[in-house]
Design a protein around this nucleic acid. Sequence first.
DNA 1: GCCAACGTTGGC
DNA 2: GCCAACGTTGGC
Length: 149
Amino acid sequence: MPYWLMKSEPDELSIRDLRHRQTARWDGVRNYQARNFVRSMQPGDLFFFYHSSCPEPGIAGIGEIISAHYPDPTALQADSHYFDPKASAEKNPWSATDVGFNRLFERVIPLSRLKTQSALSGLALVQKGSRLSVMPVSAEEWAAILALA
DNA sequence: GCCAACGTTGGC
DNA sequence: GCCAACGTTGGC
């Protein structure tokens, strides 16, 4: 079962929001590499829920993929922040998936701490200049991060 | 196909 | 708010 890491701005969707709602649609991915990762997700996959663009960027908990991927409806909504004028119902290049809550960490594992872990040096998250918002996490990386929670 | 300009991401 | 790094756009 593959593992993932996905970034969200907590102002938009935080791990606490997910815990409260239990499920949410993970949409708005607008990068082809990240989209391809979304398309390879399977129900039951777990992911680290990363808080970005906030006072304490880091991993805040764990979520679970609970649906197959499907065309991202926000790409077709003119009033959406994620509207893509080049997308159509017939040809929508963007994908979304439904996610569920799994676990809230007592404390956020800060990015600064993740950066100090040699076991995580291959993770796109900690690599200079990387802005990938959806990325795979190996079983070894998963265990190394969990050990910090 | 090249590449400059632009917009976005996201840490700090 | 700043700015480095990246991806995309569009003229040529």
